[in-house]
Amino acid sequence: MPFDLVIYDCDGTLIDSETLYSEVSLVLCHEIGLTQWTIEDYNANLVGIPLADGFKVIEAALGRPLPADFESRIEDGVAARLESELRALPGVREALPLLAGRRCVASSTSPAPLRRNLGLAGLLEFFDPHVFSASQVARGKPAPDVFFFAAAQMVVEPASCLVLEDSVPGVQAARAAGMQVVGFTGTAHDKAHMRERLLATGAAGVIDTYGDWPGEAARLAELHAA
């Protein structure tokens, strides 16, 4: 039997906004003195967790509090690029209708930017109104709260959910919720290394492109029914 619900992360899984956030944020990190950080450092430490938790990581690395306007400068810098640069990842629109079961989004991004980004990428219509954020729960990923919340809102059991995630914290959160999860490496800089990390964290499989998604979901649905 198919899964009752397919849950998608957003940034780095449906759209490539992670790249924009990392590039803008890294410039600002350098400006405030965290000059030793590279894009690899940023991705390894911050991708997949809520922005507020990421700021704590940056503060710890910097050794002092962030400027009061740090978040607004990031959002302004990203917003300036979103309109012209944000796109749905290749194959998303074609793959979504091919999967049986209902679908929703469960992301670390706060609700307003999350819905804005999905709208700019032309994907909101596939999920609306079932778009959920970690800011609606007590703890962000890697805690399972946002996945439990999404399942409850959609009135399905966590064990009947399949998740697509691009980050280690996201896979950890899905597994902690008792959900089956597939890793996605379509936006990873080092796909082979990320594949290893996602599998080691508990992903049941890893795909590189959305062309592989319907087949992988069908494979896991068969195992789920066994």
Rank of each mutant, 00 (worst) to 15 (best):
S17D: 09
R139T: 11
D208Q: 07
L198E: 05
T13A: 09
E94T: 11
V137T: 10
L46A: 00
A151E: 07
G91C: 07
Q172R: 11
V47K: 13
S133C: 04
R116K: 04
L98G: 06
R103A: 15
P158H: 08
D208G: 10
G101E: 11
D128A: 10
L96C: 11
V182H: 03
A188W: 01
D4W: 01
V131F: 04
P144L: 11
P90A: 06
R64G: 14
D190I: 06
A95I: 12
E23Q: 07
L164S: 08
E31I: 00
E31D: 12
P65E: 09
E59A: 15
L123W: 04
L223A: 09
P113G: 01
R103G: 09
G77V: 15
G63R: 08
I15N: 02
T187S: 11
F55W: 15
I32F: 02
I74T: 10
Q172F: 02
D69Y: 08
R175K: 10
V57Q: 14
G33L: 03
E18G: 13
M1A: 08
H30Y: 05
E157K: 08
A80M: 02
R103M: 12
R93V: 00
A159G: 12
Y42R: 14
S108L: 13
L124P: 04
G178E: 13
K56Y: 09
I58P: 13
G33S: 00
M1D: 09
A188S: 06
E31N: 09
A204F: 06
G33K: 00
A176N: 05
D16L: 01
E23L: 00
V181I: 03
A174W: 05
C104L: 08
A138M: 06
A88N: 01
A60H: 13
N43T: 09
A204K: 06
L120D: 05
L66A: 15
V171G: 08
P67N: 15
E165S: 11
C161S: 10
T35N: 14
A225M: 05
L164R: 00
P144A: 12
E83G: 07
E216K: 06
E75C: 01
E83W: 04
G101I: 11
D76S: 14
D190S: 07
F3W: 05
E165G: 03
P67W: 14
P129A: 12
N45L: 14
V156K: 02
H30V: 13
A100R: 15
V206C: 03
